[in-house]
C-alpha cells in the first residue's frame, strides 16, 4: 500500500473496572489491547471477531468517541490521538459512523430532515436553504423519497431507517466511514440492498470503510482486506481472498469453518471450537486463544505470540506460534 488515509498504531483502550466498597479501579478491561492497522483511500477493511472482542470499541476510538488509553491514530497525515475538540473539528467531519441499530442512533422525536442535517448544523455549514437542498440530495443518494423529510424514523422499515443513518453519515462528505454492523439487524432481502448501496457510494465518492460484522460471507463480499480480532488483539489480517483461501490462525480457521453454507448438498461435519470467549478482564496467559485452540502446544500458555508475516504474501499477517 502506498498511501494511508488512516494509520492506527498500537492502540489500547483499557476500561477501569470498579470493584469493592471504595470503587477503586483495581482491574482493567483491556477491550482493545495493542491494535495497529492501515486503511487506504477507497479501501474497505473488514473487521470480524466474536461478540465482545473489542470491535465497536476500536471503531469508537478511531472516531474519538472514546479517548484511547495509549497508542496513536493518524488521519490524513495528522496525529489526531490527543487533539482537543476544536482542533479535531475539521478532521472529525471526514470520519463518520453508521451504527448497528438505526432505531437507537436516530432520535425518534426529530424529523428525518432534522436528523440528516444535524451534522451540517454542528459543523456550521451552509444556511437554511442550502442545507435543505443538501438533505434532498442525500435522500436521493440513499434512495429515499423527498417527502421523507418531514416524517419520523418510526414511520420507516428497518432497512429504510438504516438508509437514513447512512444519509446522515454522508452529509459532510466524509473520507472514512466506520460501519458498525450496519446490516446485522436486517433481513436478507434488505441486507443486500444496503450492501449494494454502500459499494456504489464507495465507488462514486472514493470512500474508505472500516466494516465491522460477524457474518463472514458479508464481510468477504465488501472487503478488500480483512482483520480478525480476538480478545482485543488482531490475530490475523490480509487480503480478503488470501484470508479465505489460506487462513493460518486456528481461530480464523474455526470462524471460516463455522459459516453456514446455503447449500444443502454441502452438509459438512464441522470442526467446532468449544468454550466461550474468555473475559477481557482476566485474559488467559500466553496466547489468549490457547484454552480453546485445537492446536495449542505447551509454550502457548506461556509465550505471547506476535503479528508476523510468515507467508509468501507479505501483507498476510499472523500471530500464532505454529508459524515459527
Amino acid at each position: 500500500m502506498s498511501e494511508s488515509l488512516l494509520k492506527v498504531r498500537d492502540l489500547k483502550m483499557h476500561f477501569p473496572v470498579k470493584e469493592g466498597i471504595f470503587l477503586r479501579a483495581s482491574k482493567f478491561n483491556k477491550a482493545v489491547d495493542g491494535v495497529s492497522l492501515d486503511i487506504a483511500p477507497g479501501e474497505t477493511l473488514g473487521l470480524v471477531g466474536e461478540s465482545g472482542c473489542g470491535k465497536s470499541t476500536l471503531g469508537r476510538c478511531i472516531t474519538r468517541l472514546y479517548q484511547p488509553t495509549a497508542g496513536s491514530i493518524e488521519f490524513r497525515d495528522q496525529d489526531i490521538t490527543h487533539l482537543g475538540s476544536n482542533a479535531l473539528k475539521p478532521q472529525r467531519q471526514h470520519i463518520q459512523m453508521i451504527f448497528q441499530d438505526p432505531m437507537e442512533s436516530l432520535n425518534s422525536r426529530h424529523t428525518v430532515g432534522d436528523i440528516i442535517q444535524e451534522p451540517l448544523i454542528v459543523q456550521n455549514i451552509g444556511d437554511r436553504a442550502s442545507r435543505a437542498k443538501r438533505v434532498l440530495e442525500l435522500l436521493n443518494i440513499v434512495g429515499l423519497p423527498a417527502r421523507s423529510v418531514t416524517r419520523y424514523p418510526f414511520e420507516f422499515s428497518g432497512g429504510q431507517r438504516q438508509r437514513i443513518g447512512i444519509a446522515r453519515a454522508l452529509a459532510l462528505n466524509p473520507k472514512l466511514v466506520i460501519c458498525d454492523e450496519p446490516v446485522s439487524a436486517l433481513d436478507v432481502s434488505i441486507q443486500s440492498q444496503i450492501l449494494n448501496l454502500l459499494i456504489e457510494l464507495q465507488q462514486e465518492f472514493n470512500l474508505s470503510y472500516l466494516f465491522i460484522a460477524h457474518d463472514l460471507a458479508v464481510v468477504k463480499h465488501i472487503s478488500d482486506r480483512i482483520a480478525i480480532m480476538y480478545l482485543g488483539k488482531i490475530v490475523e489480517s490480509g487480503r480478503s481472498e488470501e484470508i479465505y483461501r489460506n487462513a493460518q490462525h486456528p481461530y480464523t480457521q474455526s470462524l471460516i469453518a463455522a459459516i453456514p453454507v446455503p447449500d444443502p448438498h454441502r452438509k459438512v461435519q464441522r470442526q467446532i471450537i468449544s468454550g466461550d470467549v474468555p473475559s477481557p478482564i482476566a485474559p488467559p496467559s500466553g496466547c489468549t486463544f490457547h484454552p480453546r485452540c485445537p492446536s495449542a502446544m505447551s509454550r502457548c500458555s506461556q509465550d505471547i505470540p506476535h503479528l508476523d508475516s510468515p507467508m509468501t504474501d507479505k501483507s498476510h499477517l499472523v500471530s500464532c506460534h505454529l508459524m515459527d
Binding site: 436478507v188 432481502s189 441486507q191 443486500s192 460471507a217 465488501i222 480478503s240 481472498e241 446455503p262
Partner: peptide, 9 residues
C-alpha cells in the same frame, strides 16, 4: 440475494 463465499467481491 444472499452473498455467498463464492460471489464475486
Amino acid at each position: 440475494s444472499i452473498p455467498r463465499l463464492d460471489t464475486i467481491p
